[in-house]
């Protein structure tokens, strides 16, 4: 029994650390796609946001005496800002220039790792940027003392976990309860309807893509904070995994969270199955667990796409003359 509890205490932080960036980035993708713009550039945006966020944090650590949590917060904010700026390139190509959204996103996905490695090697002579410090919050006052829940959620926790929860609540509220949300959804389903009612499609779609950029950029920083002590021009396919989460979650915030939980479970198992009692008896290569989320997404796609909940107008540049 004691062992089981220890195991849970061991696995739980990993589980959260995987779920949070996945769901934040997927929620970002949600805003872009619900507004009608396919965003397979999430991977590239995560890299760009993560890279610049880490640079900012390194600079702060070297030059200031700030509390690590404040530095982390600034890192997240910087990542979000630059993720948004980077996503602007995708928005410009796919909305203003009516380009093929997949091609534009592919360019973003190639540019970000190249640029970050280029800069890292040029200025620091290495493609791995180390990040010093332990960014967990050892214990949240009062809440951390609650038995079990306190230990699971409020000790050795990341700031990003709480930010993630706030983002989920705000994102859901924005999408379903506000004017912007109504307009975003209408642009993804039937932009001609929205246009005829004076909604500025281009503006709404820009907002959608920029939100996705901010969230993906922040997700990039969270990824580095929670998984690596260094940044090497990659987020290990997390952006594409988040895209799978978005699809598996059928473009719906709550389902996205469940999809992220499921994907995170698979990933945690893949990384730790050798130490989990029970699972270590079944000899299954870790690659199987790694690929399960993608296979699951394919299965869901092949059984749902006849009645897919994908926004109807997603991927089509808005052309007012086509009715």
């Amino acid at each position: 029994m004691r062992e089981l509890i220890d195991l849970i205490y061991f696995l739980f932080p990993l589980f959260i650390a995987t779920t949070v960036p996945l769901s934040i980035v997927a929620l970002g993708g949600l805003f872009s796609e619900r507004s009608g713009v396919v965003n397979i550039a999430l991977e590239g945006i995560m890299i760009m946001g993560g890279f610049i966020g880490i640079i900012a944090m390194r600079a702060l650590i070297e030059n200031t005496e700030l509390n690590l949590q404040i530095i982390a917060f600034i890192g997240l904010f910087t990542g979000a800002t630059f993720g948004m700026l980077y996503a602007l390139a995708h928005a410009f190509a796919s909305i203003t220039m009516k380009s093929n959204q997949i091609i534009s996103a592919t360019a973003l996905n190639m540019f970000a790792p190249a640029m970050s490695v280029f800069i890292a090697r040029t200025f620091w002579n290495t493609s791995n940027l180390n990040l010093m410090g332990n960014y967990t919050i050892s214990k949240v006052p009062i809440l951390g003392d609650i038995p079990i829940v306190g230990q699971l959620f409020f000790t050795n926790a990341y700031l990003s976990t709480y930010i993630g929860i706030i983002i989920f609540i705000v994102a859901t509220a924005v999408l379903y309860k506000t004017r912007l949300g109504l307009r975003i959804r209408s642009c993804g389903e039937n932009p001609h309807a929205a246009d005829s009612l004076g909604v500025n499609i281009y503006r709404v779609r820009y907002i959608g893509v920029l939100i996705s950029g901010a969230l993906a950029g922040m997700g990039g920083v969270i990824f580095v904070l929670s998984f690596a002590t260094r940044f090497s021009g990659s987020v290990a396919g997390f952006g594409f995994l988040a895209l799978a989460v978005l699809i598996f979650g059928q473009w719906h915030p709550k389902k996205i969270i469940f999809a992220a939980l499921f994907f995170a479970t698979m990933r945690v198992i893949a990384d730790t199955y050798s130490v989990i009692p029970g699972l270590n008896m079944i000899v299954m290569p870790r690659e199987i667990y790694r690929m399960l989320p993608y296979i699951a997404t394919l299965v869901v796609l092949s059984f749902a796409s006849k009645r897919s909940r994908a926004p109807r107008a997603v991927g089509e540049p808005y052309d007012p003359s086509k009715r």
Partner: peptide, 21 residues
């Protein structure tokens, strides 16, 4: 419009207030 400008998965109310919320 000849081809209705309606969002298929919105309610009647949502369709009517869209743009004039």
């Amino acid at each position: 419009h000849q081809h209705f400008k309606l969002v298929h998965n919105f309610t009647v109310t949502e369709n009517i207030v869209l743009g004039y919320e």
